[in-house]
């Protein structure tokens, strides 16, 4: 018993002490950011993604554990452009180590608001990867070459993805899609596809009469046969439009996060981006 009691404090200490040889962590706000972080940081840092899989980043609220992770981390990577509303309320010391990856990117607007979905433009996403590599290099100068190499490998994969998508998009004659939430502006812009949408900002907003009327008209006039919705939000509006026009519904993933199933199946940014393009190409009348 006595021996046990003697052991106890050391056990407690062992479990509490910040273990010196554990890897330092960096925090990423949601999926596309954490995917970049793990691609560029490799095995040098542990990457913690704040938004759990299957959750919508807009609805996200922090728990105490999230905040301790923020304090213990070396850097906090966010997309910016309003995707992470909690960043504004962070304490000064946390704001100082926050890196906004979309800084300096040429953004587009939709209905006079900035479209935050920059990660869907493969070239902009590459720029974000470079921003990530630059700040990691500043954080850990001894591994500059490592981050540069990872960034180059990443760029090469992006080039492959782009080539694949262009091939598919070229064969897609309609060059128009109908979506419930205008998340695909950057992606459509890259491949010369037009995006018809019901809601411009939030996937769960109540649409106006006019928005519904416009999309009904467009769908009928242009012979669109698929209404796309996103898996992490409600498909009610898309279903309604589909019923009204006889179109079918299909899911697209704006890559704000993976569903639990996608994560289990080992899907990532590249495979889901490809899958999105395949689905779009199949939506021919």
């Amino acid at each position: 018993m006595k021996r046990l009691l003697l052991l106890l404090p050391s056990l407690l200490l062992a479990s509490c002490a910040p273990s010196g040889n554990a890897k330092p962590t960096i925090v990423a706000s949601f999926y596309p950011i954490s995917f970049l972080a793990s691609s560029i940081a490799g095995d040098k840092y542990d990457v913690v993604c704040l938004t759990p899989s299957g959750a919508e980043p807009h609805d996200f609220e922090l728990t105490p554990k999230n905040v301790t992770t923020l304090y213990d981390s070396k850097a906090i990577f966010v997309n910016g452009l309003g995707m992470e509303s909690w960043v504004d309320s962070l304490q000064e010391s946390l704001k100082e180590k926050t890196v906004t990856l979309s800084d300096g990117l040429p953004t587009k607007t939709i209905d006079s608001r900035i479209d935050p979905h920059v990660w869907l433009d493969t070239r902009l996403y590459e720029k974000m990867a470079e921003n990530m590599a630059t700040s990691l290099a500043k954080l850990d100068p001894s591994n500059v070459q490592f981050y540069r190499d990872n960034c180059a490998t990443f760029s090469k994969k992006m080039a492959d993805l782009r080539e694949y998508c262009h091939k598919i998009a070229d064969a897609f004659e309609d060059k128009v899609i109908a979506v419930n939430h205008a998340a695909y502006g950057y992606m459509c812009n890259e491949y010369g596809i037009e995006q018809l949408y019901i809601n411009s900002i939030s996937p769960d907003e109540e649409p106006t009469q006019k928005a519904i009327e416009d999309i009904l008209k467009a769908v009928e006039e242009r012979g669109i046969d698929t209404i796309f919705f996103e898996e992490l939000a409600s498909d009610a509006v898309a279903q309604k439009i589909a019923k009204e026009t006889g179109a079918k519904t299909e899911s697209l993933n704006p890559l704000e996060g993976l569903t639990a199933k996608e994560e289990r199946e080992g899907m990532d940014y590249f495979s889901i981006y490809r899958q999105n393009m395949d689905k779009i190409a199949r939506s021919k009348p």
Binding site: H58, E61, L62, T63, L81, G82, M83, W86, I201, S202
Partner: peptide, 17 residues
């Protein structure tokens, strides 16, 4: 703008300046 709106709604006892 929805983004602005959310940051004003957002209150968390964990993020008090």
């Amino acid at each position: 703008s929805a983004a602005n709106f959310e940051s004003y709604l957002f209150g968390s006892i964990l993020l008090i300046s």
